[in-house]
């Protein structure tokens, strides 16, 4: 069975470091998607902690609706994950 195709939109630091606006990965969960991101863009290695969780300086939003912290969350085909820098201000 093929894995769902997920689009990762990059903003802020992730976009600057990856030098692309989005990535397409195949992943069944948020954690798998993040692992794919790191595999495709080694400059984003710090996105994931050693335990596989999202590093605190980043945020993930599912389709711009909900922020996601649970890396085991399942993904559906066509989902879009937004990878952002945390903190606003200024």
């Amino acid at each position: 069975m093929s894995l769902p195709t997920i689009t990762i939109e990059l903003f802020g630091m992730p976009r600057a470091r990856a030098e692309v606006r989005e990535l397409v990965v195949s992943a069944a969960t948020v954690g798998e998607a993040l692992a794919e991101v790191v595999a495709k863009c080694p400059t984003l290695a710090d996105v994931v902690n050693a335990d596989g969780r999202l590093a605190s300086q980043y945020l993930l939003s599912l389709d711009g609706k909900h922020f996601v912290s649970d890396v085991s969350q399942p993904l559906q085909p066509g989902d879009r994950l937004l990878l952002l820098s945390s903190d606003a201000g200024g």
Partner: peptide
């Protein structure tokens, strides 16, 4: 370190596109 990288490397102006995407 990483907690201030955004401010150092991009500045707060990088909020604009993010906020735009999030309505």
């Amino acid at each position: 370190g990483p907690a201030t990288a955004k401010y150092r490397e991009l500045g707060t102006v990088s909020n604009l596109l993010t906020f735009n995407r999030l309505h």
